[in-house]
């Protein structure tokens, strides 16, 4: 790529802010719109294959693997801002969710938790739990427990059986995110793996080349 910064070996004596700055090479800045584009196009692909998922964070997780937590968090935040500009402002309320996914996935990737399929399973579980815990309070406080048709149906059935709204929304969210974030994590990992290493940015090359 145009500039090289491995991201893996950063001097511990340097300030936190300048180490974040190291993550943002020109290559990273160019990758971020691609991540945002993949997030936006995930929904289209899922529709085409008639899969009952959102898949709106594949790009965020990919950026986490290829460029680290800060670039991934920015990708997630800007994705929601861009989708607001394209006509879905409700997404702005969920802004903390992709930011958290990006940060968590990026840290996991740097610590080696995307190095083989078994470890990706652990990463997927962590991302699933983080996404659920952050999304649920937003769903309850901002949207009164109502999100897409699928999760709302689950929430509705649970609430009708006499459970508290928070508990019902949390259960619905855990269920939906399990499939969505699990699939998102694995798909991001596998499509990254399908790319010939010479086209990957430095961190992506390191992560995928350490695999057998």
């Amino acid at each position: 790529m145009a500039e090289s910064s491995t991201g893996h070996e950063t001097g511990s004596d340097r300030s936190f802010v300048s180490r974040i700055g190291d993550d943002f090479t020109t290559t990273t800045w160019v990758l971020i719109p691609i991540g945002i584009g993949l997030n936006a196009v995930g929904g289209f692909i899922v529709n085409l294959l008639k899969l009952p998922l959102f898949m709106d964070n594949i790009g965020t997780v990919l950026l986490a693997i290829m460029a680290g937590p800060w670039a991934a968090a920015l990708t997630g935040a800007l994705s929601n801002f861009v989708s607001a500009m394209l006509g879905s402002p409700q997404q702005l309320a969920f802004l903390p969710v992709p930011v958290a996914i990006g940060l968590v996935a990026g840290v996991l990737a740097r610590r080696g938790w995307f190095d083989d399929v078994k470890r990706v399973l652990v990463s997927a579980l962590v991302i699933w739990i983080v996404a659920t815990l952050i999304a649920t309070p937003i769903v309850v406080v901002v949207f009164g427990g109502v999100t897409g048709a699928g999760p709302s149906l689950v929430t509705g059935v649970l609430v009708a059986s006499g459970r508290a709204l928070v508990e019902s929304a949390l259960t619905a969210q855990f269920l939906v995110e399990f499939f969505d974030k699990g699939a998102t994590t694995f798909i991001a990992y596998f499509i990254g793996k399908a790319v010939p290493p010479r086209y990957l940015p430095p961190q992506g090359q390191q992560i995928y080349s350490s695999q057998k």
Binding site: M1, L49, I187, A194, Y199
Partner: peptide, 18 residues
């Protein structure tokens, strides 16, 4: 099939990004 659809998409856009 998701991977079969998304991998070529990513490779193409990465080359453009470079």
């Amino acid at each position: 099939s998701l991977v079969a659809l998304l991998a070529p998409l990513l490779i193409g856009t990465l080359i453009v990004a470079n």
